[in-house]
């Protein structure tokens, strides 16, 4: 295996290739029926793993499972109990 000395990376944004979601032991599930669209999960997520898209008059929240490490901060902060942590099973 030939590597650049010092592990230098010439390609920008290559971190996207390191899908760290595999470190997760629990996954957050968002229930959009309960969601009040406050955005707390998006604000508090330490790994930018909450995704938001606009559909008509609603903001729809989802989780980027490629990078979410399952810390549970979103579930803890959610004021309407819309996020539950579910054990990952292989």
């Amino acid at each position: 295996m030939t590597l650049p000395p010092g592990g230098v990376i010439r390609e920008m944004g290559s971190t996207r290739k390191s899908r760290t979601g595999g470190w997760r032991s629990e996954r957050p599930i968002i229930d959009m029926e309960k969601c009040i669209e406050c955005g707390s999960c998006w604000i508090f997520c330490p790994d930018n793993s909450i995704l938001v898209r606009v559909e008509g008059s609603r903001r729809i929240y989802s989780v980027d499972y490629d990078f979410c490490k399952g810390c549970g901060i979103c579930a803890n902060e959610c004021p309407s109990g819309a996020i539950t942590m579910v054990l990952e099973e292989k």
């Binding site: 590597l3 000395p5 010092g6 592990g7 230098v8 990376i9 010439r10 920008m12 290559s14």
Partner: peptide, 23 residues
């Protein structure tokens, strides 16, 4: 190879277990 804003690169990035040992 050296740090140059005109030719960006990452020096000293994280190495996952699949590459640390080789380095």
């Amino acid at each position: 190879v050296y740090l140059d804003p005109r030719d960006p690169m990452a020096l000293g990035p994280i190495a996952f277990p699949n590459i640390y040992m080789e380095l």
